[in-house]
Design a protein around this nucleic acid. Structure first.
Lengths: 270, 270
DNA sequence: CGGTGTGTTGAAAGGTGTCAATGCTAGTGG
DNA sequence: CCACTAGCATTGACACCTTTCAACACACCG
């Protein structure tokens, strides 16, 4: 549990900076896109000031109230969702360690969605005005943050396709595979098995289905040996077969190795 | 048709800069968020170099091929969509005058979706590396571009809700009202009536329905006096009633007047 | 003039939702 | 240690929204 004791902004005198990278999913994400100079690393670390913990099933912020903070997820699963007046609920997206939450706060008074923790979670609370500062201090990091937005849009786009044009089996399979890929990038998958804290209720609200139908589909998938699912853990016995059913291609989750942003201004690494 | 003859980067000596703002949906969009200095205006104008026209139902770029350009829409409707292997199609989003297309190109080799024109359209073609330059030249504009991304995410979020949790009637109503609001901001609505070039086929691919069902629902809506729809024109006789059915609130389309981004660094207007 | 794209309608099939009841497990408090 | 509750998973029967398949009308266009 040494990870948990790492302090924000810790000097590299105390902890090898490389080691810190490996343990901090937020900075690690940036290094997959850009080579970071030490000044840039310091700026990113500087964002991570206040650390807050939330229990499972706890609202982080609500679409009803003004949002004065941005967050960076250190650990835990968070759902962004919207509520309809009659109680219907739709989950828009999931945020995992390293993801940012509520960047909206930079340009909007109220967020476009509400958020709740799925599991117990710890977040870095960031002042949105500090984020604006970052845009002025390091244009390279600004583009990287834009990339985070682009990636999230890509995820939402896939989400739209699976809700709109896939049946229950396909869309559940696709959701499982997406989360699998994202967790794998975080080093949270071992042997195609991973923590999967979503209840059937949540899956239903994610894919626009009912709990009952999710249950039936999940049972069928278990029966067919497509998944093994119990005790909040998911196992994918035959990745290829599941992938085929879902029509899943993880490309939209992975950063390109050679986009313009990595080439241009590469000499300004600081 | 004077609008069409305005040249990019035109000097304010020739055309009052205010007038130019009013005619250019891209720059106009920025002015709703930020007060622009003349240098910033020049940077934005500088982006709009090559102007290209496309006929209706024409692909602008495809998810299969590398994307080397970003676009700014001057006029026309463009659909972002994805194709599944078996031919199913899902429209992710619509882009209207003033919107940007393919910002992905800044950070990705291949775009996350394909695009096609709905109507005949004219676009400004922008070099994505020039966009990167913009991040370095004007952090304020960079944040504004981020805001464009945030707004698009908000639109996609609403889209997810209407596909996932709304029935055909609700989601069609919601789509109509969203487009109505967006067109209204562009000054393209007169008396709750507006050009509506979507075929029932396209509506179906947008909302994850079938053409047949869209047709039936649309007929029912016409029968109830909810809409008047013919000849590519849409009329909303009773806005309040349609709004109620759709559960529509245009807040997610409108920029806040006082977000942090407009306050901080306001002294750096140049 | 025929072809193509779009809109329209009917009948039947099917996926998904609704309602309702039950079982199971973990946690709580007495 | 045992009721008791809350949350989640599971199942059956039935209704309904939506799809599928098929056919036809209409306008536009080369």
């Amino acid at each position: 549990m040494q990870v948990l004791t790492v302090t924000a902004g810790i000097s590299s005198k105390f902890t090898g900076i490389i080691k810190y990278f490996m343990f901090n999913p937020f900075i690690k994400k940036f290094t997959t896109l850009l080579d970071l100079g030490s000044r840039e690393t310091r700026i990113l670390e500087g964002l991570q000031k206040t650390r807050r913990s939330f229990p499972a099933r706890h609202r982080v912020y609500s679409a009803e109230e003004p949002l004065r903070s941005t967050y960076i997820i250190d650990q835990g699963w968070i759902a962004k969702y919207k509520l309809l007046e009659d109680g219907r609920q739709q989950i828009i997206n999931y945020a995992l360690p390293g993801d940012m939450l509520g960047i909206d706060a930079m340009v909007l008074e109220k967020p476009e969605h509400s958020t709740m923790t799925i599991t117990g979670s710890t977040l870095w609370q960031v002042d949105p005005e500090r984020l604006l500062d970052l845009f002025h201090e390091s244009p390279r990091l600004a583009t990287a943050i834009c990339w985070c937005g682009t990636r999230e849009s890509a995820i939402m786009g896939e989400h739209i396709v699976r809700i709109g044009r896939c049946n229950a089996l396909e869309s559940i399979a696709h959701l499982i595979l997406e989360l699998h890929s994202r967790l794998e990038m975080l080093g949270l998958v071992s042997g195609n098995e991973f923590e999967f804290p979503l209840t059937q209720d949540l899956i239903a609200d994610t894919l626009g289905l009912t709990t009952v139908h999710v249950n039936r589909t999940l049972r069928k998938m278990s029966g067919n040996g497509l998944i093994k699912y119990s005790d909040s853990r998911m196992l994918i016995p035959d990745y290829g077969r599941l992938r085929l059913i879902a029509g899943f291609d993880p490309a939209y989750l992975e950063p390109d190795t050679k986009p313009p942003v990595t080439r241009r201004y590469a000499d300004q690494i600081r």
